[in-house]
Design a protein around this nucleic acid. Structure first.
Lengths: 224, 224
DNA sequence: GGAACGGCATCTGTATGCAGGTTGCGAGTG
DNA sequence: CACTCGCAACCTGCATACAGATGCCGTTCC
């Protein structure tokens, strides 16, 4: 019974959580198109599990808003393109602004120092043009902002939103000159936070993400 | 097999959606206390269904953040007290501020008119001291704000946060003079939005919710 | 007497079978 | 030729059975 066709089988392990992430990725990356039906049996055979865990995964995806569900109908991929995607980028900018503003007010001395260190250490990555490494630094940098706000619920929202946007931001640092520009914008945020200038920090963070969103929107619309 | 004890049986009908709502209600009304375990078999017998739909309901509740789930452990009601509760109120104020600000910029003429009408029509409820009706109006008023922002993701976040805070705000309008004060604050928000004054609208909405949060925090700490 | 190990009870995770509903195709009729 | 009605295949929703994991408790050894 393990000798089913090995062609389309997706070997991610068999937990429901992994299936949720795998299907979510397929949706946001466009591997499954909006409006497409997600047949339970087909998914079950693809993941080499029975229908029961597939059903639970689909229900969770429904709660996340990635698929639509109606009684006695197949789950269908919701349309995450266009306006909703745009709304997520805009929301992301707002959330980043909040985090930066609150960080400017609330970060401990140690947190400010750590943020500055993290930031300064990334300069050599810019010069080296190390896109992959800079992306990792970038994640770390923003996570510090989210934590610095000292608000668990905001942290949850911003983390979740960021995760859902991840696939759309993936190739962003490939754009020429983006690394240096990103560093420059980070610098403004850090400076404002060190000065405890909440308004400036919020505005700088908002602009930073808003700019990224434009670039990514273009990228997303262009192809993928 | 239908002759199980008829004592604690909850006769809500058997769809998963109804179970989700029923369990969610029990959690937010305090019928089930935070930290309490939700045993699948017990729930199944209570609702007179098998474990399968119960599992799906629990997974959905987990996605909503109402229950915590770990592998091979019972689902437990999340504890939403203390610092996390405070962070949710603060986040709520921020989100309301965003919605009001964006509403001031983006609401159509019809939306502004409808908001104003809704608001003005509530004055008689204030005079009558009709707490229940005013609460319904209040929900409608805020929902209009959320929609007026014209940002689906923000709408989702604010709606979800509001839902999770609902039980802690329930008795809020019982406080003496709160109705009139609420109306007054709504008035400031509406006026700013009509004038398309984004900054003023945002600040008014933020303050409105922040004040409510204080009152409710006292209430939540006092008893329930 | 206390701590650690092992067995047992219990609960979760998954598979599968069955019933009800929905859809789409085809035959029959106007 | 088109429209309608009916049937059949398929798919979802739920129940039940089974396997694996966890935690508790008693026993045993130090």
């Amino acid at each position: 019974m393990k000798q089913v066709r090995r062609r389309e089988v997706i070997r991610t392990g068999t937990t429901v959580e992994q299936m949720v992430r795998a299907i979510a990725d397929m949706i946001v990356t466009g591997a499954i198109l909006p409006g497409e039906k997600l047949d339970e049996i087909t998914l079950a055979s693809r993941f080499e599990v029975s229908r029961t865990p597939v059903r639970e995964a689909l229900r969770e995806l429904g709660a996340m808003g990635l698929v639509g569900r109606e009684p006695n109908r197949s789950a269908v991929v919701t349309n995450v393109t266009g306006t909703y995607l745009h709304s997520m980028f805009e929301a992301m900018a707002e959330l980043e602004g909040i985090c930066a503003r609150l960080s400017a007010e609330r970060m401990t001395v140690d947190e400010r120092r750590a943020l500055e260190l993290e930031h300064r250490s990334s300069m050599r990555l810019v010069h080296a043009g190390a896109e992959e490494d800079y992306a990792a630094h970038n994640t770390e940098f923003h996570t510090r902002l989210y934590r610095g706000a000292h608000n668990d619920h905001v942290f949850e929202m911003v983390t979740q939103t960021r995760a859902r946007l991840a696939p759309f931001r993936r190739a962003q640092f490939r754009l020429p000159g983006r690394l240096a520009k990103s560093y420059e914008e980070h610098d403004q945020i850090v400076t404002a936070i060190i000065r405890a200038d909440a308004v400036a920090a919020g505005q700088a963070a908002y602009s930073h993400v808003a700019i990224v969103s434009d670039a990514s929107a273009v990228f997303a619309a262009a192809g993928e």
